[in-house]
Write a protein that binds this DNA or RNA. Structure first.
Lengths: 258, 258
DNA sequence: ACGCAAACTTGACCTTGATCAAGTCATTCC
DNA sequence: GGAATGACTTGATCAAGGTCAAGTTTGCGT
């Protein structure tokens, strides 16, 4: 993707590298072309800026092409609550299809490139493409599933397990997107992780130090490295999948075993 | 509803008392009649039995007419995690529209009456009724919203606050269904509450005793009474809504003020 | 390059709520 | 109705993680 002439690169849904993980999943090629036609706006949002804010008129949904976005809200005491971090390929603000205003803040954690899709356009399109409704429903269901998985993580586990689970989950998402799962850049503050997991920054710091000393994983600056992915998975309380075939390569962490 | 001849009472969507809070919300009267035609099956599930179980083929969604149902799952160590309690008027198992098998157990906490709607029928119906898709999406979004609200409650609050918030939330749902919000029957074990809130039964017991001593609320057997609803709301960390008009009646808890 | 602000680390201490154990009370099943 | 089972209560103890305070490091703006 990083061609020598990035300024001439025209990315559309039909040739976008995110096609499989972005919202046209399950649509025909023809349908994708049609969807592409309504994707005129491709906003760029700077670090710390909002893609949308709570209370704003909800007129569009967004596909994240690059960067990381947090979805958050504030309680009465002003404390932030972070529900999700979105990675490239994720769709943000689905609730707009169903509500007059956004219910959460979506904040860019670094410079983000997005596709903006007007709800009105999508509604019109949905009348011609029955598949799209199913897609939207599926995305919403996935979002619910993610939130529940996150709740299961935070509701009844130790701080160590929560953090391991979080890192593992992120690593899996990178893997699913075709990137390395054992080392990646993650522009998320430790403070935000702490908030997301219902912990304090101090606790996160201490646990990361411990993990580092144990040789399990390192998270310094924005660089995350899983030195022992299977240990992370184990700590996260996630089952190892059955070995497929020979057992040459660990099917989970892609590390060579045996 | 408790007529003298209950065995002759035929409840359909068109004349069901739950109409407003059940899934036909926003449909025309004509559409409701059509929907009603596919609601042949009205199962009864006994206390402790499953409406559906994780892994089962997901062929239907359900509307709960009476009783309470918990939606839960088990972690690797066998610990139960309870995501939601469904009250009469709620729709259960929406994920069936989108998935081959159920992802959670739905367990009746007392004797439950339900409506069963086959996914296949609903899919067929949706082609004739564009409104239905919107309804379904809205229900899914509400479910997501509820899960997020629950997460916010559990992720960063004290045990007292969690419990107060839970009780307040249930009370509101009773109020929204036209029942008294300050006293109601709730067939939920304290142990299940504890699980739901990420606490232990001992802690729940101790907090309930404290609330009782403080004259805030009582929860004995299945009977819940909010002696000071506004105190509960306050503890739950929920804003009092603006007084509408005179301030004769507290708009939140319907208690007389001033 | 410098300086400031924000992020992160580290240590000492303390609070909340979990754990363990032993009881009482309800409900169900003969 | 009486035993058995499971739900709930109560108390004593303990540990995980929060809080507070004082650092160090990083990154950014000038």
């Amino acid at each position: 993707m990083a061609g020598s002439k990035p300024h001439t690169l025209q990315v559309t849904c039909a040739n976008c590298g995110l096609q499989r993980i972005c919202f046209p999943r399950g649509l025909t090629q023809q349908e994708i072309v049609r969807l592409d036609a309504i994707l005129q706006s491709q906003p760029v949002v700077g670090k710390g800026e909002a893609v949308f804010k709570q209370g704003e008129a909800a007129r569009a949904i967004f596909a994240l092409k690059s960067g990381v976005v947090k979805l958050c809200r504030y309680d009465r005491a002003g404390n932030e609550i972070i529900h999700t971090f979105y990675l490239p390929g994720d769709v943000i603000g689905l609730e707009a299809l169903d509500q007059p205003v956004y219910q959460y803040d979506a904040i860019a954690l670094d410079r983000c490139n997005l596709c903006r899709v007007e709800v009105a356009d999508l509604d019109r399109l949905a009348q011609q493409m029955p598949n799209l409704n199913r897609q939207v429903l599926q995305m919403m269901r996935r979002e619910l599933e993610l939130e529940r998985a996150h709740f299961e993580n935070v509701s009844s586990r130790s701080a160590d397990q929560r953090l391991a689970h979080f890192v593992w989950h992120i690593a899996e998402r990178f893997r699913d997107r075709g990137y390395a799962m054992d080392t990646f850049q993650l522009p998320i503050l430790h403070r935000d992780i702490a908030t997301h997991l219902g912990l304090t920054p101090e606790t996160v710091s201490r646990i990361l130090r411990k993990f580092h000393q144990q040789g399990i994983l390192t998270w310094q600056r924005k660089q995350v490295t899983l030195h022992d992915p299977c240990a992370v998975r184990e700590l996260a309380g996630i089952e190892a999948p059955h070995a497929s075939g020979e057992g040459e390569v660990c099917p989970v962490c892609q590390a060579h075993v045996g």
